[in-house]
Simulated scan of single mutants.
Amino acid sequence: MLTIKEIMEIIPHRYPFLLLDKVEELVPGKNVVAFKNVTMNEYFFQGHFPQEPVMPGVLIIEALAQAGAVALLSLDDYKGKIAYFGGINKARFKKKVVPGDVLKLEVEIIKIKGPAGIGKAIASVDGKKAVEAEIMFFVGES
Rank of each mutant, 00 (worst) to 15 (best):
L64T: 07
E6P: 04
V107Q: 01
I112V: 15
P12H: 01
A116V: 05
I110L: 04
A121S: 08
I135P: 01
F49G: 15
D21W: 11
I4L: 13
L75K: 02
V131W: 04
N41K: 12
I88D: 05
I118L: 14
F49I: 14
V38R: 06
Q51V: 12
G29W: 00
V54W: 15
K36D: 15
V27I: 07
V58T: 13
A123P: 04
H13T: 09
K111Y: 03
F45D: 05
F45A: 06
V125Y: 13
D77E: 10
G80L: 12
V32S: 06
I109C: 00
R92W: 11
H48F: 11
L20E: 06
N89L: 09
F137H: 01
N37R: 07
A34D: 15
G80K: 10
E141R: 00
V23C: 08
D76W: 05
K128L: 14
V58D: 15
K22G: 12
Y78W: 12
A83V: 00
K94D: 03
E52P: 09
G127W: 06
E62M: 09
N41R: 09
G117Q: 05
L2H: 08
I122F: 15
Y84M: 03
V58L: 10
A67K: 05
E6V: 08
R92M: 07
D76N: 12
I110S: 05
F44L: 11
A67Q: 05
I7H: 13
L18P: 06
Y15C: 11
L2Y: 13
E9A: 08
G86L: 06
P99T: 05
M1H: 13
L18Q: 12
D21A: 15
I88C: 11
T39E: 14
F138R: 06
A91Q: 06
V33S: 13
P53Q: 12
R92V: 14
A130H: 07
I4V: 14
E106W: 01
G100P: 08
D21S: 10
K5S: 14
Y78F: 05
F85Y: 14
M8W: 03
A63Y: 03
K5N: 11
E106F: 04
M1W: 05
K128V: 12
E52A: 09
F137V: 02
L73Y: 00
